[in-house]
Each structure stands twice: as C-alpha cells, then as structure tokens.
C-alpha cells in the first residue's frame, strides 16, 4: 500500500509529541496490515493521542476498552467475527505497561487459547501516558519517575522482562521483535504476523523523546543505536525457534546511553564505569545469545 492510503488509515491529525515513535508504529502497522483490520487498543499514549472525542485518527475500525484488557477484548472480537463468518484481521495494540505488566493475565490467557490475532506491543519502556513511571520493560539503570536515580540509586534496578520468550513458550507460531528505526523490516513482520494463523506477537522498539529525554528528530537515530549496540535485538521466532536475527558491527553501549537523559546519571558528574560495565555485559550476553556480531575481515 502506498503512503497516501496509509495516511487515511492512521491520520496525521493526532496529538502525539513531535517525533513520537508510537505514532510512526501505528502508521507502519496499518500500512502493512491494510484496511481490513480491526485494532484493539489499550489505555496509554497511543489511545489518548489518537482519539480525543469527537475526533479519531483511525481509518480502520478501532476499539479501546481498558488499560489491561486488549487481549481479552480481541479474543471476543475474533470469536465474534468467526461466528459471523467475517474475515477481518484483528490486531491488539498495547504499550509496554499494558503488555508486560497489567495486561499479562489477559495476554497469557489469549495466547494459551490460541485465538487468531496479532498482538503488537509498542515498547517505549515505561508508562509514558501517566508521566514516565517504570514498567517491566524499563531497561536496567534507566531513571524514571518511580525509579529515579539518586544518591543511593542508579535508576531502575531490574533488567527488562523477556516477554517475547514468554509468549513463544505459550506456543505462539510467530514471535518477532522490531524497531521503528527499520520500517521495511517492521512492516514485513507485521504482514507475516497477520497472515499467520494463531496468536502472534511483535514487540516494536519505540523510542520516546519525551520520556527518554532526547530531541524529537533523533528518534530514528536512537532506535538505530539500540540495535547497533546490541541492547535491542531484532529477531524472528517461528514455533519457538529463532529463525532470523539482525546482525551488526557492534558499537559500545555508551553510544546509545549518552544521548538520553534517562541515563545521564551514568555519565555525570563522571562516567560510572561499574554500572556501564553491567549494561555492556547485558549487550554482550545478547550478542552471544543471538549471534548478532558481524566479524569484519582484517
């Protein structure tokens, strides 16, 4: 589908911050999935910036019920369509808070039951809509309003929950991670997910300029650095097996961290070598686990 048509499916007149990756994600999703799609959203930035009554940015049928029930609502939509012999695709769309935390019960139930829908988590790594509080997707050491860095805190004390693996363990036929910094790859994955029968999951990295503290025009650059440092890995899993991984010539994690206010405490007043080493170790572990390193020929 061309860009003009995509504009109609997710209109530009929404209220997201300039440079919002979640808004880019919505557009890319509909561009890939097309107009015969029903979207089920959770409460969060995406819902709030796209549907202030009496306006809506959605050119496809769209429903929002609560923060934590989009998978369950989607289950009902899927059953309803099936009963009526209808063929629309169903996409549940949730922030990381809705997906990793409060909606986990509904999500797990829906995946276990095997409904034919695609769940897409736009992962901006905190509860942005309520003012940048930590979630189960917040990375290690990120400062948020509920995990602030302080004289005895380096920010969020836990690493990110590995949700794709948890959903793969539910028997999901297709699980993928993606990034708005790589639009064609993301769109391809959405297309694949909506055309794979059964519950599929995509987690798309969606840098948030407001919550992470960077200029809106750097969204894509920050997304790229997450991949290039190995802190975010783009991969696909089919029936529980990793089938495709994006390889990179890795850069040190500093390159990613230094440009974001949420990690500023790791560099000021001086570089916190011990903490940054721990984050580097997380990237190194990702590199080994997924085999992302491209070794350059001498």
């Amino acid at each position: 589908m061309n860009d003009e048509a995509a504009c109609v499916l997710f209109d530009s007149g929404h209220r997201a911050c300039g440079g919002c990756a979640a808004a880019m994600a919505a557009r890319l999703i509909l561009d890939a999935a097309g107009k015969d799609t029903i979207v089920v959203s959770s409460t969060g930035c995406m819902e709030v910036f796209s549907t202030p009554y009496p306006e809506t940015a959605w050119g496809v049928p769209w429903i929002h019920s609560l923060f934590e029930n989009n998978s369950a609502v989607a289950s009902g939509v899927v059953a309803s369509l099936k009963k009526q012999g209808r063929k629309e695709k169903v996409i549940a769309l949730g922030g990381d808070g809705a997906t990793f935390d409060i909606g986990m019960l509904c999500l797990s139930g829906a995946f276990e039951r095997g409904h034919d829908f695609t769940y897409i988590c736009y992962d901006n790594e905190a509860y942005m809509n309520t003012g940048i509080q930590r979630s189960g997707a917040t990375p290690y050491d990120a400062s948020t309003t509920t995990s602030p860095a302080g004289s005895c805190s380096f920010g969020n004390s836990r690493p990110k929950k590995d949700l794709p693996m948890i959903l793969a363990a539910h028997g999901a036929p297709y699980v993928a991670t993606a990034s708005i910094a790589y639009p064609p790859d993301f769109k391809k994955k959405v297309e694949k997910a909506v055309n794979t029968p059964g519950p599929c999951y995509i987690q798309v990295h969606a840098p948030c300029c407001t919550g992470w503290g960077f200029e809106g025009e750097k969204t894509v650059a920050i997304g790229k650095l997450a991949i290039e440092t190995g802190l975010w890995v783009n991969y696909e899993m089919e029936n529980g097996v990793v089938t495709k991984v994006k390889k990179v010539v890795r850069k040190p994690v500093d390159d990613y961290l230094v440009g974001q206010k949420r990690f500023r405490h790791l560099f000021k007043p001086k570089r916190n070598d011990a903490e940054i080493a721990k984050i580097q170790a997380l990237a190194d572990r990702n590199a080994v686990k997924f085999g992302i390193d491209i070794t350059l020929k001498k």
């Binding site: 029930n69 939509v77 369509l81 039951r113």
Partner: peptide, 27 residues
C-alpha cells in the same frame, strides 16, 4: 451454535463479551 471462550478470569470473560458485542454478536 455459539463460540464458547474458556477465559482465564471473569475480568477477561466480560472483556471478551465486550469485544464480541462491539463486533456485532449477541453475547
């Protein structure tokens, strides 16, 4: 002749009914 969703909680039961009803079925 009904779709019977064996949900994991009452919370999901009514949420699924909500979605199914919005999509046009009697629930």
């Amino acid at each position: 002749d009904a779709e019977y969703i064996t949900v994991e909680s009452e919370f999901s039961a009514l949420s699924a009914c909500l979605g199914a009803s919005a999509a046009g079925s009697r629930v």
